Computed example of a mutant assay.
Amino acid sequence: MSSQGFELPLRLLLAFRVLIDELHAELARQGHPEIRPMHGFVMQAIGPDGSTAVELGRALGVSKQAAGKTIDTLERIGYVERTPDPHDTRRKIARLTPYGLDALSRSARIFDDLRARWAGELGEDRLQALESDLRKVTPANLWRLDTPGWFGTL
């Protein structure tokens, strides 16, 4: 069966979407019903040390204002808290709350479960081959957190 060139990016995007949709359905069942796909990028960019809106915007490829609005949303739903910067009291640092850390920890376990399900469906050898092939054609750096800015959706 021959495929047209446009099918490859659509299939890769669809595979991503299937995984993310399944992740979020399971996160909702596990006590995180308000978290959205973009929030994962934001929480990864905030990281264990926290981030200012300026730093977050830079990491995500969006404006400081867009990053600040997202911090507001994550703060309102309990994933992030703002604390004074110990080095500059004019700045606020967004930090993950225990609830935010719980969401990231659960996400990692759920992704492991999803991968195991795909291995059951495709076979471990085929899934490893797919992952190996994707490593050959993609940059080594997995953490391209600027996807929100690239999509222009934040």
Rank of each mutant, 00 (worst) to 15 (best):
52 T>H: 06
138 T>W: 07
138 T>P: 01
57 G>N: 09
107 S>N: 02
124 E>P: 01
95 R>M: 08
104 L>G: 07
102 D>Q: 11
72 D>I: 04
68 G>A: 15
52 T>W: 09
53 A>G: 00
25 A>E: 10
71 I>Q: 14
57 G>C: 02
33 P>V: 10
103 A>G: 14
73 T>G: 06
4 Q>S: 12
43 M>W: 00
69 K>F: 04
26 E>N: 09
51 S>D: 12
88 D>P: 04
54 V>A: 11
131 E>M: 08
94 A>T: 09
85 D>W: 08
125 D>M: 10
110 I>R: 04
17 R>P: 09
82 R>G: 07
26 E>P: 10
58 R>K: 15
46 I>D: 06
122 L>R: 00
66 A>W: 01
20 I>V: 04
149 G>H: 08
124 E>F: 02
23 L>A: 11
15 A>E: 12
41 F>S: 05
92 K>L: 13
117 R>G: 10
28 A>T: 03
91 R>V: 14
75 E>G: 00
101 L>M: 05
86 P>L: 10
152 G>A: 14
152 G>P: 08
61 G>V: 05
40 G>S: 15
133 D>S: 04
10 L>C: 14
23 L>T: 07
106 R>C: 13
115 R>S: 03
29 R>Q: 12
31 G>H: 12
27 L>D: 03
98 P>F: 11
102 D>A: 11
18 V>P: 03
60 L>H: 00
24 H>M: 03
145 L>E: 02
146 D>T: 01
4 Q>E: 11
90 R>K: 12
68 G>N: 12
90 R>M: 13
70 T>I: 05
144 R>K: 01
57 G>P: 02
19 L>D: 10
84 P>L: 13
61 G>W: 03
72 D>V: 07
55 E>P: 04
83 T>I: 05
71 I>Y: 11
51 S>F: 07
136 K>V: 04
52 T>Y: 02
115 R>D: 03
98 P>Y: 11
104 L>F: 06
34 E>H: 06
46 I>V: 10
12 L>C: 12
40 G>F: 13
144 R>P: 00
70 T>Q: 01
106 R>K: 15
9 P>Q: 15
75 E>T: 00
69 K>Y: 09
103 A>C: 14
74 L>S: 08
116 A>T: 08
63 S>E: 10
50 G>T: 09
153 T>G: 09
36 R>D: 06
108 A>E: 13
150 W>R: 03
151 F>G: 11
76 R>L: 12
119 A>F: 02
153 T>H: 14
24 H>S: 05
63 S>V: 00
